[in-house]
C-alpha cells in the first residue's frame, strides 16, 4: 500500500521548517531568523518540486498551532488554511511543544520556548507530566525538584541560554536543541495527536486584554 503523503510546516519559532513524508521524511529549513512571511511558501514549493510532487499529490497538510511566536503561528496557520481551501486537502494542527520532543528519547522530555521576562512556554512528557503552560521557569524547576524523580531531564529548545543558570538547581539534566521541527509535526500527526480544530494555541492573552482584565472590566 502506498504511504500517506503528508506536507507539514512549523513557523512558531525562528526557523522556518517544512517536511514532506512519503514513506521517508524529507526536511527543508531556512537559516534566516523569523523570515517566515516571505520564506514559507517558496520553501513549500521548493520541497514539493525537489521531490517531483505537486500539492495535489499530498493527502494531508499539518501545521504547528503554537505556542510560540504569535505572528509566526498565524503565518503558518493562515498559509495552511489557504492551501487547504484551494486544494481540498484536509488540514490538521498539532501542539508545537509536543512536536518538539520527537527527535529525542528520554524519561522526562521538556520542550521549552522563551516567553520573555523569565517565562517559558513549556510542557513535560514522561515520568513527570505537565500540561502545556506559560509561566516562570523557576516555578518549573521547583516542581521538578519536588517531584523527587531521579531520571535525567531533557530540556529541548532553541536559544535557552538565559535559563541554563537557573537549571543548575537540578542535578541530572541536559539542554538539547530543537531540530527538524516540521518532521516532529508529522510524527505527532502519525501518532494521532493532531486536531481538526484549527485554532492557534497562544497560551497567553493579548497584553491589552490582560491589562483590561486586571482593571476588573
Amino acid at each position: 500500500m502506498a504511504h500517506e503523503k503528508i506536507l507539514a510546516f512549523d513557523t512558531v519559532s525562528s526557523v522556518c521548517s517544512v517536511c514532506i513524508y512519503d514513506g521517508q521524511y524529507h526536511s527543508f529549513e531556512t537559516t534566516t531568523s523569523y523570515g517566515h512571511a516571505g520564506e514559507l511558501m517558496p520553501l513549500v514549493h521548493r520541497a514539493l518540486e525537489s521531490l517531483s510532487y505537486s500539492l495535489q499529490d499530498m493527502d494531508a497538510i499539518v501545521v504547528s498551532l503554537g505556542p510560540g511566536s504569535f505572528t509566526g503561528i498565524r503565518i503558518g496557520l493562515s498559509t495552511a488554511l489557504g492551501l487547504s481551501k484551494g486544494s481540498g486537502i484536509p488540514c490538521y494542527g498539532v501542539d508545537s511543544l509536543l512536536s518538539r520532543i520527537y527527535p529525542y528519547e528520554g524519561k522526562i522530555r521538556i520542550p521549552l520556548m522563551d516567553a520573555r521576562r523569565g517565562n517559558v512556554y513549556g510542557a513535560s512528557y514522561g515520568v513527570v507530566e505537565k500540561e502545556a503552560f506559560n509561566g516562570p521557569f523557576l516555578e518549573l524547576i521547583e516542581e521538578l525538584k519536588a517531584s523527587g524523580s531521579k531520571e535525567e531531564i531533557l530540556f529541548i529548545g532553541e536559544k535557552l541560554e538565559n535559563f541554563h543558570e537557573d537549571a543548575k538547581a537540578l542535578k541530572n539534566h541536559r539542554f538539547l536543541p530543537a531540530k527538524e521541527l516540521a518532521k516532529g509535526v508529522i510524527q505527532a500527526y502519525q501518532e494521532g495527536k493532531a486536531t481538526r480544530d484549527l485554532r492557534p494555541i497562544y497560551l497567553r492573552e493579548a497584553e491589552a486584554k490582560q491589562r483590561l482584565e486586571a482593571k476588573g472590566c
Binding site: 503565518i75 493562515s78 489557504g82 481551501k85
Partner: peptide
C-alpha cells in the same frame, strides 16, 4: 494573515 492566506490559496 491576509497575505499568508492568499498566497496559500493562489498556490493551491
Amino acid at each position: 494573515v491576509g497575505v499568508s492566506y492568499a498566497k496559500g490559496l493562489a498556490y493551491a
